[in-house]
């Protein structure tokens, strides 16, 4: 597979919409020396405007829903959204509540789902790779 859409490294932005921190620490664990996703150029950045991929954790609380939408809109195309963890996919253990409005795909379109409670670092890296492949398929033909 030739890389056309991204001629440079893939950057990710992480947003927590009310998760328990379990998946969040695994996302960082994926970046630190044991798993070292940074060697592939996958890096967490501090602003959605710099990011190619959005990592979302958590079942989306009432307060975070508008924020999540706004972050998604701030990202430049081409972009992909990855949901990390069961609660963002279907609610998981938080499947019914008065202060949750999720799951994530109820708020924004999602490309890749990484299940797990909590998702393992290997799974998260695999999810990012899948998102990368999808972006290549969709935008690669256009020559980036």
């Amino acid at each position: 597979m030739g890389i056309n859409a991204f001629k440079r490294a893939l950057w990710a932005f992480h947003v927590n919409t009310g998760s328990c921190n379990g998946c969040d620490i695994e996302i960082i664990a994926a970046l630190t020396p044991r798993y070292d996703a940074e060697r592939f150029g996958i890096k967490l950045v501090g602003s959605p405007r710099h990011a190619d991929v959005l990592l979302v954790t958590g079942p989306v609380t009432r307060q975070m829903a508008p924020a999540l939408k706004r972050i998604y809109e701030q990202m430049a195309d081409p972009k992909a959204v990855i949901v990390v963890g069961n609660c963002g996919i279907s609610g998981g253990v938080f499947h019914e509540s008065y202060n949750l409005v999720g799951p994530v795909d109820n708020i924004i379109p999602v490309d890749v789902y990484v299940p797990g409670c909590a998702a393992r670092p290997e799974a998260i890296i695999y999810g990012v790779v899948k998102a990368w492949e999808k972006l290549e398929k969709v935008y690669g033909a256009e020559g980036g």
């Binding site: 499947h95 509540s97 008065y98 409005v101 799951p103």
Partner: peptide, 8 residues
Amino acid sequence: MLHKLYEV
């Protein structure tokens, strides 16, 4: 106000 996340 309940919202069932699995029923969306």
